[in-house]
């Protein structure tokens, strides 16, 4: 028996929108402490890790650990039928080949349930080693989205370099080059507007902008984004979900052979 009631249903809608274009199918792993998902994109270049802890739910019941394979496109179609203010409940029964999404309007005058077919997914759960990062940049998520979008109109790859001067995003393409430098800026009215650079050692790495732009679909989930880099490791682009968990995107770098 599985029953999860999320008052802020729009959060689940936003989570789905942030990952559905990167990952087609994924196993949702439910346990008493919350639910998680880990999946690679079909090209095996990026990996999504999602965690939503049980504390964030108004009601959370999961009698035994269970894994449900879902097509994220289909799940997104169903969740789009929920209003932004709706309360969403996920229900499942042991051994069932379906999951039910129930949507309640805030005034309880409209209640809908959508039953979705589950699927068997052969997933490879990868071990992500703990890492010490050379540099961690925390910045407004909207600013990061703007930079990725702007640079993608010039080139296909971005070089992200962190030095004590700041963080530089560079690209080059047929029409020319672009460099955007952000300096650490903590003298802002609101903490979420700050750019904070923690650097142990300078680092410079190259990534595909197509993936970075896909990650920025998570922007509505959080005012800030954290970018963690070390040479020879995938970059981690993390959007925290207030008091509940996170969506993390890992992207393998482009490297000289």
């Amino acid at each position: 028996m599985l029953e999860l009631r999320l008052v802020q249903g729009s959060l689940l809608k936003k989570v789905l929108e942030s990952i559905k274009d990167l990952v087609n199918d994924a196993n949702f792993d439910f346990s008493s402490s919350g639910f998680s998902l880990q999946s690679m994109d079909s090209s095996h270049v990026a990996l999504v890790a999602l965690l939503l802890k049980s504390e964030g739910f108004e009601h959370y019941r999961c009698d035994r650990n269970t894994s449900m394979g879902m097509n994220l496109g289909n799940m997104s179609k169903m969740l789009k039928c929920a209003g932004n203010d709706d309360i969403i409940t996920i229900k499942g029964d042991d051994g069932s080949d379906t999951v039910t999404f129930m949507f309640e309007s805030p005034t309880q005058d409209k209640i809908a349930d959508f039953e979705m077919k589950l699927m068997d997914i052969d997933s490879e759960h990868l071990g992500i080693p703990e890492a010490e990062y050379h540099a961690i940049v925390k910045m407004p998520s909207a600013e990061f989205a703007r930079i990725c979008k702007d640079l993608a109109s010039i080139g296909d790859t971005v070089v992200i370099s962190v030095t004590k001067e700041g963080v530089k995003f560079s690209t080059r393409g047929d029409i020319g080059t672009a460099n955007i430098v952000l300096r650490q800026n903590t003298t802002v009215d609101k903490p979420e507007d700050a750019t904070v650079i923690e650097m142990n050692e300078p680092v410079s790495m190259t990534f595909a902008l197509r993936y970075m732009n896909s990650f920025t679909k998570a922007t509505p989930l959080s005012n800030t984004v954290t970018i963690s880099m070390s040479p020879d490791l995938p970059v981690v682009v993390e959007y925290k979900i207030a008091e509940m968990g996170y969506v993390r995107f890992y992207l393998a770098p482009k490297m000289e052979e």
């Binding site: 992500i128 080693p129 190259t206 995938p234 490297m255």
Partner: peptide
């Protein structure tokens, strides 16, 4: 041109 690495070359299957 740098080559795109696979995520599988960094993270291990159990």
């Amino acid at each position: 041109m740098p080559r795109q690495k696979s995520i599988l070359s960094f993270f291990q299957k159990p």
